[in-house]
Design a protein around this nucleic acid. Structure first.
Lengths: 230, 230
DNA sequence: TTGCAATTCAAACAGTTGTATGAAACTATG
DNA sequence: CATAGTTTCATACAACTGTTTGAATTGCAA
């Protein structure tokens, strides 16, 4: 069989390249990972990359598209669930949780398979390499769905405030993943980066406060100050 | 004259290389800027880089060290001023302002000279290139001074909370600089990235809230919700 | 001017990159 | 078995990287 060759049940070489490339890119960034590094890690021939993917850029693009769709699906699932539970209007903290939870759990969690995938996405969001830049415009449309959910959740708020809240939530989550090393060194280990649920609570709580401001927090989204004692 | 050659009054070639490199690195990142790009922009000979700096890495290192010292000095000046004004204990919002203000103004402000310098520093904090990685450990010591100031400002707080506050403040500032384009696109221009003072107020206000939690905000650090109408 | 060091320059260097090639090895059908 | 199609492999290629070289050019002092 395999006349067209894009869905062989066990396309060993292809998947070996994909997972090796994802892990290497996640660990060392796009800049200093060469095709020869990838094929060495995957234990396949150099020409296999161009044979199966056409070019290095197309390999990166396929990696990014796959993971991007998976992450977006996961986030939207959480969002839909939250909106269904709230009868069309999700609580604002649930929206933030759906937005940053999947990536945060993926990057900081113990599962190493997911970790490579999530860290790859963080790399992709930072190091702007051409094949990814071309695709990444779709992410705006994805975020717009969260902005819409926030509008439904807090209909009174100025939209600008909502955008800033979204922006800050993503900022805190991404920086925590990207630069966790600095936080650990700075705090000399007293900030526990393994407590993913705690970190998620913390980021969500600050994001909610950024929106609800000094007002009485109506929904008691998370126990912020009581959290640190862990 | 010029026997040792490190302080010629008008070392045209050297400074031309430095400023061209800084601008290119700031705009396009370290990955895809070659020495030939730099010398073309600076309008000097290719060999000049190795003659004046020894190697590409040493050029990057000099650029980073210079800007890093300048930024740190600027931040510490603001911090000292705030602590002096408060009699040894700066207000927490003033500490945050000293921490993220210089970079934020430098990157988002209208001044193009400073802009290249500040955006270069952001690049350096993201794309981890070897010559910079070796130096960047000192930044921890620099941040420690701000952690100490925060401890003096809020002596009751758990230190872990302070570290997270510091971390989140930097996260919001950096992401705002790095990914301002996405925020503009997402908000369809309704988030005004030219209002640097407003953005600074906003980041400081959220950072303070992250620390002071749901309690009554004792110092009314900034008018958060009233800001957006501009 | 002469002489000498500092600087600039064009050219070439060795190494690495992504990609292409054509022969070999494999796979499964006739 | 034979044969056609797919996949692998070693190897070569052209382009580009940072760096070096040695000859020109400059600038200034004696």
């Amino acid at each position: 069989m395999s006349h067209s060759g894009h869905d062989m049940p066990t396309d060993h070489t292809r998947t070996a390249i994909l997972s090796a490339a994802e892990r290497l890119y996640a660990d060392r960034g796009f800049a200093d990972v060469t095709l020869r590094d990838i094929v060495a890690a995957a234990d396949v021939n150099l020409a296999a990359v161009n044979y199966h993917f056409g070019s290095k850029d197309e390999l990166i693009a396929e990696l990014f598209v796959t993971r991007s769709l998976a992450t977006n699906r996961e986030r939207l699932n959480e969002l839909k669930a939250a909106e269904a539970a709230g009868g069309g209007r999700a609580a604002i903290d649930a929206i933030f949780r759906a937005l940053v939870g999947p990536t945060l759990r993926g990057c900081l969690g113990p599962d190493n398979e997911r970790s490579a995938a999530a860290r790859f996405m963080i790399r992709a969001s930072i190091e702007s390499v051409p094949p990814i830049r071309r695709i990444k415009n779709r992410e705006i449309d994805h975020l717009r769905k969260f902005a819409a959910a926030m509008r439904r959740s807090l209909p009174g708020r100025d939209q600008v405030e909502l955008y800033w809240g979204l922006h800050f939530a993503l900022a805190m989550a991404h920086q925590t993943i990207r630069d966790s090393e600095r936080l650990i060194k700075l705090s000399e280990g007293s900030c526990d980066l393994n407590d993913v649920a705690g970190i998620l609570d913390r980021i969500v709580a600050v994001s909610v406060m950024a929106l609800t401001g000094g007002e009485a927090e109506k929904k008691a989204p998370a126990k912020l100050v009581a959290r640190d004692a862990r």
